[in-house]
Write a protein that binds this DNA or RNA. Structure first.
Lengths: 215, 215
DNA sequence: GTCTATACTTCGATAGAC
DNA sequence: GTCTATCGAAGTATAGAC
């Protein structure tokens, strides 16, 4: 059995996915063109339509690939045998690490929020919901044990994740501000960011008689 | 002097601006079409190019109109004769009120961040910088007087504003989550949101020996 | 699986009458 | 200031050879 001539190039499909993720992250769904994706992947445009039915399907495939593994890591923390406060520390740490591990996750995530999640189907929405549910459960258990004060569950959740998202998302703007207007909004490395958010979480949730003194 | 026939329709230009703001907020710069703006403003497409040189210029005009008044309100707080802690309370209150007062400001703001500020010129960048500078100064003065603990200035800043932005920006996603997946991520009214963020600010900045006990 | 060529559509922008 | 008509570029998607 001789190998077929014109055998598939190694990883054509994955090269398309990688190139498309880069383009969608950089320009958003509407402003990204299939031509640019093809050029960046060094693939013929028709190949993209061979592997994916259309631009939208390619996009949602990328969103799913980006969200699933991170949601899995995040929800797994709930099962760890640790007190609520430590689980939140781990949550913050994992969230920051996930964002910093990928150049495309955060832009895709943020754009999807800006779009009101219009490109998210039922499955993707469920992923988001899982994370919220897990964090909410951790906080609720801490509150029951009186190691946390009662807080608005949604507001507590966004207080934990939003600063990380916005801080990392504005990195390029801050850089332009520094070079173009000589305004310094200092950056922070992962460790500093994680410790800051853990401090905020601890203080936000400390019971009134013992604020910030949680372990 | 008889009035000219074919006198200008009242507020053609402002109707264009309003319609364009709605379209840009809802769809982003790239996905917004001039045809749709014209239809929404009940104006002929050519009129848009009579009043504005091109789509981009129309967009930046809207961004400036949206950002300037809010930046002004925010930076004015610094001049009020109140201790740092109260100035931050006012800052939070004003920021939430500004977001809730306009249906278009937040989407425009968030999209601009997602885009890395590519549509922002020197002037607009300077506006953003002013707000950061004002908040940073308030925090620094509180730290000098030992009513605040030392914190990373950028991280403190984003801890104050990011949760508000993300919480309000995700309202539509949360609504879809509720109806489509029956997952309840409860909303919060302005008062609750303001009080939560003021609480977070107070606790984040309280000195170690007196956490959260600041006035 | 891969490529060329192209059909079909939409969009930004302008010319020119009124 | 307002409208009709249209140009030219760019974009999604497909047909069909190999």
């Amino acid at each position: 059995m001789s190998p077929r001539r014109r055998s598939p190039l190694p990883g054509t499909r994955s090269r398309i996915l990688a190139a498309a993720a880069g383009e969608f992250a950089a320009h958003g769904f509407a402003a990204t063109t299939v031509d640019r994706i093809a050029r960046r992947a060094r693939v013929n445009k028709a190949m993209i339509y061979y592997h994916f039915p259309n631009k939208r399907a390619l996009y949602t495939a990328i969103v799913r690939d980006h969200f699933s593994p991170i949601v899995e890591k995040l929800t797994a923390i709930r099962a760890e045998p640790a007190p609520a406060a430590q689980q939140l520390d781990r949550f913050v740490e994992t969230f920051v690490a996930s964002i910093d591990a990928s150049r495309t996750f955060l832009p895709l995530f943020l754009r999807e929020i800006a779009e009101g999640g219009v490109h998210l189907g039922g499955e993707e929405l469920a992923l988001v919901a899982e994370v919220f549910g897990a964090v909410r459960a951790v906080i609720a258990s801490g509150t029951e044990q009186r190691t946390f004060q009662p807080v608005h569950p949604s507001l507590a959740h966004f207080t934990l994740i939003a600063p990380v998202i916005m801080f990392r998302a504005t990195a390029s703007i801050r850089r332009r501000l520094k070079t173009a207007r000589n305004v310094d909004i200092p950056d922070a490395d992962s460790g500093t960011l994680v410790r800051h958010m853990q401090m905020v979480a601890r203080r936000m949730l400390a019971p009134p008689h013992n604020e910030g003194r949680i372990l």
